[in-house]
Amino acid sequence: MILEGKVWLFGDNVDTDAIIPARYLSAVDPAELAAHCLEDVNPDFPRLVRPGDLVVAGKNFGCGSSREHAPLALKGAGVSCVVAQSFARIFYRNAINIGLPILECPANLAGSLAPGDILRVDLEQGLITAPRSGGRFQAVPFPPFMQEIIKSGGLIEYVRSRLNY
């Protein structure tokens, strides 16, 4: 799958309270959560993010609480993929479990991008290209076990297929 979209840049250690503040956690609807996604970090984000946009961040993206509301809010906002130098582990598994594509790319992508740049991501190959600057980056591909979950469409679908044996 190839994804292409406008880039939103964030720094290191973007925590789950920043992605979706706890005060909004009485909602479970992705659209409702999306309305407040990342608003404490960048108030423009929930207003101006468009379906297909990508989030590019530094190290330890999604640290903090286990709330699945965080990847759900991003997915609800239409974010097609999150590329970060590294992810916090619960966020990482949550994103995979709900089917939000994420890529770990050790290179400092943010350094060679400007907000609003277009980024192209090849999920299968883990290849990331930035047409404006001509940058090419290689992300860490998913281990096969996780590919299986993603191929099934998320953990629930994966479990379902196992239950039907």
């Binding site: 286990s66 699945e68 598994r93 709900i98 953990l155 629930i156 239950l163």
Partner: peptide, 18 residues
């Protein structure tokens, strides 16, 4: 260890987690 809600859902059904 902490997991997400979908992990919990799967564990409640299967009694397993990855």
């Amino acid at each position: 260890t902490g997991v997400g809600s979908t992990d919990l859902a799967a564990a409640m059904a299967l009694g397993e987690a990855w």
